[in-house]
Design a protein around this nucleic acid. Structure first.
Lengths: 221, 221
DNA sequence: TGAGCCCCTATTGTATACAATTTGCCCTCG
DNA sequence: CGAGGGCAAATTGTATACAATAGGGGCTCA
């Protein structure tokens, strides 16, 4: 809990995710240190962490920018996730304890609940969703895999586009998770991998559609 | 070329790879700043970079250690590489230009040459080998993939164990590359992936055997 | 003797001042 | 009017001093 460095990370990150900046915006270390309320030293650490997670980029001359994600890059990101999380699910299938599978079921119940309401709780959904995937990744017992996925799974644009998701999409995600849990209970690695694969591939299309939607509405502004 | 930070990285890295430390050794930032000849500020950046590449680790209380690689971790690393470099090869098959394929052939000729001698040029072999894989990765046109592989491909132990490799193993590697080039010329993504997969899987076994060999000789000392 | 506490030292974390680099602007010269 | 050069301001990089924290050793008290 080296506070300064971590607060810097948290504050800057939420500043980015909450949408106070737009892709292509330039930032300076000083500006960020104002936002974070700490000196530039820990800010630089936070920036390099965010850079690693692709939430920020630096030019060759080390100026800081908010990256903008094209559809190709989104596609690529989901392809890599599909491959790696598929692998994680495969490993998890033979490594999860019964208790952990029960945990997953509980977490997924929260997902179902979050979208059962008239007004779906999108933030709650995303939190539970992330927890679900993290639990699976953890169960794969592969630190390196975890580290890599952590940097891919960062969902910068997700929050921006979340409101575009249809309730039906969210419900389908929860059903995918149900099937994944079934695959885990059956201890069937191949089933688990396949389910995870199609889950993420659908998520990609939903996401890409939502992004296109948002972009065209932005352009109209 | 932010000199101080980069020199720190280079110096510390070679200090590690050249084997001046042993797995489990503890290091301090001050010691490293002596080695690098710069102040602690750039050293800290270098350390976090090396940490990312898994050449160093920090405990929960942020003490710096030289990590110790078990066989499981090696296995896991090669599995991930197999998956990701297989993917890279698949993409490269439809993206490489004729010229680039010729380049690969030239690079691989160096590999053949390096092991054709009576006394094989292991360092030269490793350099050319890395260049070959980097070229393929580049051709996949996937920055994220490149970034991930860069952190997996770091070969801390490789240098230590390189002398254990048999000439026959090295020759087989070069032949694998020949076949990969054939797959590229045929523009066959599936063939490319398959070749890359078996190439890395064999490399894993060679590597693991060499490591076991080395460990038992260490224990005997 | 040995378990627990405290203090001292070693090490890491943060702020700040200063150095080096980059950028953009204005001015000159063709 | 445009290209290029150079200066000043803005920004990033590095060193150093100080603050916070962790580790280790010895002391006390049972």
């Amino acid at each position: 809990m080296s506070t300064a460095s971590d607060t810097a990370y948290e504050k800057i990150r939420s500043h980015l995710l909450v949408g106070k900046v737009r892709p292509g915006d330039r930032l300076t270390e000083e500006l960020l240190s104002d936002i974070a309320g700490v000196s530039r030293t820990p800010v630089r650490e936070a920036v390099s962490r965010l850079e690693r997670e692709l939430l920020l980029t630096r030019t060759e001359t080390n100026r800081i920018f908010v990256p903008d994600w094209g559809e190709d890059e989104i596609d690529e990101m989901f392809t890599l996730r599909q491959m790696l999380e598929g692998h994680a699910a495969e490993r998890a299938a033979t490594r999860l304890s019964e208790d952990q599978i029960d945990d997953l079921a509980r977490i997924n119940q929260e997902l179902h609940d979050a979208v059962a309401l008239d007004e779906p709780d999108v933030a709650g959904f995303l939190d539970a969703n992330r927890l679900f995937h993290e639990t699976v990744t953890q169960a794969a017992h592969s630190p390196r895999l975890g580290q890599i996925l952590a940097m891919l799974v960062e969902q910068p644009v997700v929050l921006h586009t979340a409101r575009e998701y249809s309730v039906e999409d969210l419900k389908q995600s929860a059903r995918d998770h149900d099937e994944l849990i079934a695959a885990f209970r059956a201890r069937d690695p191949h089933w688990a991998r396949a389910v995870m694969g199609s889950h993420l591939r659908r998520a990609f299309h939903v996401f890409a559609d939502a992004m296109r939607e948002q972009q065209s509405s932005c352009a109209a502004e």
